[in-house]
Design a protein around this nucleic acid. Structure first.
Lengths: 133, 133
DNA sequence: CTACTTGCAAAACCTTTGCATGATC
DNA sequence: GATCATGCAAAGGTTTTGCAAGTAG
């Protein structure tokens, strides 16, 4: 692996990611960081997001039919995806049961399970009360 | 929603999907069905896969960094994704904790959870014993 | 004959890559 | 000064769309 060098752009991306709960796309991050670095390019954002994901300082959330979303909260947690407005909400509860699930799966499966990920789908409260859209 | 009309292409796609455990991509399905329908287009495959997914006769599996995969097995089950060879394996065993986690999630969350999905990542047995690649 | 489906090509969309320049160590 | 990071533009891969022609009900 190549040695990591400091970059102000990367710091800005990381700091924005840690400051928001919005689970932004690369493009949203790009537009934000652009305020501070008007010349930054989308490619730099993508490169740094992949880098941060690789070293465990960000999480990439891949969803059907839309751009990847990124999360600066890297402590174990699950996600809820609102199929109505696209909002992603962090769900912090239930980590122990997740451990159990992984254990059960490991016992019933030939290969080696290294991680698992639950995503919940449905409607967020805003969309239920029609405050959304 | 528009009324559904029979199409031989759609039947071929569905039947292929139900006959394989390989979780093929749209392109793989296209190449397969092309044997029977040499003039079929990739667009038709995509349109029908989306249609089948919408009416619950197929499942779309979205993975980071690669094309969507499709599953003709629509009874509730989870997936294992081998990060080494890309193989997807259906996990049929029952995980009681999953019920629990869904219940807890529903209680701890404002919105309405309609479904949940767990994907396991790791190495399949073939890749562990280096039979793979 | 009306509405759905197809094939084709083009477009849309998201993400990565090549390369010369610039920054960090 | 060697190596890594950036910006730009171009390419890559996947999926969708517009449209005219074909097919099912």
């Amino acid at each position: 692996m190549a040695a990591l060098k400091y970059s102000r752009q990367r710091e800005a991306i990381k700091s924005y990611l840690m400051s928001t709960e919005a689970h932004p796309t690369a493009d949203t991050i790009y537009l934000h960081v652009k305020k501070e670095f008007p010349n930054i390019s989308l490619a730099t954002v993508y490169r740094n997001l992949n880098l941060l994901t690789d070293i465990g300082e960000a999480i990439k959330i891949t969803l059907p039919g839309s751009a990847d979303r990124f999360d600066g909260v890297v402590t174990p947690h699950n996600h809820f995806f609102c199929t109505s407005c696209g909002k992603i909400i962090n769900l912090d509860f239930n980590i122990e049961e997740l451990e159990e699930i992984n254990k059960t799966a490991a016992q019933n499966f030939d290969g080696k399970i290294e991680s698992s990920n639950i995503t919940f789908y449905g409607k967020c409260s805003d969309c239920i009360s029609k405050l959304c859209n």
